[in-house]
Design a protein around this nucleic acid. Sequence first.
DNA 1: CAACCGATCACCT
DNA 2: GGTGATCGGTTGC
Length: 206
Amino acid sequence: MTRDAKLLRRAFFNRDPRIVARDLLGKLIVRREGRNQLAGRIVEVEAYLGAGDLAAHAAAGHTARNSVLWGPPGHAYVYFIYGVHYCLNISCLPAGAAGCILIRALEPISGIAEMAKAREMSDIDYASMRDLRKLASGPGKLCEALGITRPRDNGKDMLSPKGDLQAMNDGFHVDDVAVTPRIGITKSAEMPLRYIISNSPFVSRR
DNA sequence: CAACCGATCACCT
DNA sequence: GGTGATCGGTTGC
């Protein structure tokens, strides 16, 4: 299913987070677990603009927690939220600038049984859109589905050929994109920086 | 060392 | 579409 996919290039992430966010729709997040390959197509993201964006973790300045954001582009920034969930971001912009993209929802593509197990969903109906939607239609859910945690994955280069967490392009074309305000934030909440594939049933909400 | 609080989720109506 | 549960990391004393 994802055998023809290619790793995204460094230059892809070395751009304004708003441009990267839009271009990331339709790309793949791939997790390799031994002989298993789990993959999901990105259907929803949010752009975080760096130190000047009050909703961004980077607004706190350079700290131990958010250190990855100031590093080179294309790296995983994974943080823990609400004492329960992890969220996956990919760093943008050159080293020294702290933009990132929050991956908010995936359409499950391969490794669906493994994802269901990781989400502790038993007797999943593979023909049920309702069940498939539950796998990765939110930032916390997709991390659980792909086994993404801060101790394991924070700081990983997602563009490394041997990596176990990668951002890839399989040539899928996205035509209809909708832009809305970001979800769950209080500061700078009005800016339209959430990007979704308009007709995807796998987004967190419409 | 204690208090605070959040880039969410699941379940309810 | 509203709301309560939840708890480790971060921050400030």
